[in-house]
């Protein structure tokens, strides 16, 4: 790859976070291109497995973004997701991956700027972590 910016996956719920990401575009805000959005109907659909798979696929960070609390289009999806993310954070810590690489956010569809800010912040946050965390130690190649 031509750039060394951290690769980030953002799981966004259709109704709020994804819409906020759209709004960020409409407002022509800027954030690093390495943030890739995957649309879910609701963060309630976020299988904990997806997070681990994202890291396996080479992500340096994972954003899970759903509606504001109380604002989930499906009532409780974001509450479930928040707990799942918390559990995976615990697991990550125990397998040597900084839990800061994973974060859950609540935002409304009107918060385009917040989305861009989150994308920038997570990029910065992950840059500041030791970059070797996910790369295999040299002798283990192959």
């Amino acid at each position: 790859m031509t750039n060394s910016e951290p690769k980030i996956v953002a799981f966004c719920c259709h109704y709020c976070a994804f819409a906020a990401a759209d709004l960020a575009g409409v407002l022509r805000l800027k954030y690093p291109p390495n943030v890739h959005i995957i649309r879910l109907p609701c963060t309630g659909k976020l299988d904990t497995l997806y997070i681990l798979k994202a890291f396996e696929a080479g992500a340096d960070g994972v954003i899970v973004a759903g509606c504001l609390e109380g604002g989930c289009h499906f009532i409780s999806g974001n509450l479930r997701a928040k707990k799942r993310v918390l559990a995976v954070k615990g697991l990550l810590a125990r397998i040597g991956i900084a839990p800061e690489r994973l974060e859950f956010f609540n935002l409304s569809s009107a918060q385009g700027d917040r989305f861009a800010q989150i994308a920038r912040e997570m990029t910065e946050r992950i840059k500041s972590l030791s970059s070797s965390v996910l790369t295999p130690l040299p002798e283990g190649k192959g």
């Binding site: 879910l40 109907p41 609701c42 309630g44 659909k45 499906f74 999806g77 479930r80």
Partner: peptide, 9 residues
């Protein structure tokens, strides 16, 4: 409604 909460859990 298609939220997928059940599918995830």
């Amino acid at each position: 409604q298609g939220c997928g909460i059940c599918a995830a859990d």
